[in-house]
Amino acid sequence: MVYAGILAAGMGVRMNRQDMPKPFLQLGKKPIIIHTLEQFFISRQVEKIIVVVHEFWKRYAEDMISKHDTMGKDVVVIAGGDNKTASIKMISEHIVMTWGIHDEDILLAHDAVRPFITQRMIDENIDTADRVGAANTVMTTNDTIIVTLNGRTLAEIPPKSTMFAQQTPITFKLNLLNTVFHNISRQGGALETETEIARLFVQQGYEMQLVTGEYSNMKIINPYDLEVAEALLQERMK
């Protein structure tokens, strides 16, 4: 079974709109999260979708999704954790409790605020995770990345060819993901401080292969991003 976990638990602090988490803001004619979900609704490989939201917004999310055509896909809304890693763990636990776990199970985790995802990215993530265990969507960076150790002075400029920007989906074989979470809890590690699940995964020696994303697979996290996303959907003046 292929599951999609849609990460929508952020409260939109950077959007300066704290009355409304950013996935629920309008983009064009629909909320951002609906645009994102529609790409998973039509996926030929994704069978079930779990949307993780802040607990205060669970009913709202359920209401909103129920007002749109889910194209026959099962969609469940659950309350999420404090960060991306914790939310993915909650999705994983929900799957195991509800449907059990099987060797072939795959989980794609995708930011709700990346509505411009494509079927190619979804398919390549699933195929790659199925083959090697995990996949991470990335893009080359246009900007040169610098390293600073103190936030004031430059320490290093890594070669550009080694630098990529992480996007989502990030995809795992579910049993490997569960093993990673199990190992962390056995070693007394805390998920609350680790926002990057990919780091935990490779730290434990598992392979994660890269899938090429797209520059348009942008994350809408601040008002500028929303304006850019709106502009992308508008007809250009002749």
Partner: peptide
């Protein structure tokens, strides 16, 4: 050039 459009 690629453009993004909402499909109704």
């Amino acid at each position: 050039e690629m453009v993004l459009r909402e499909v109704e």
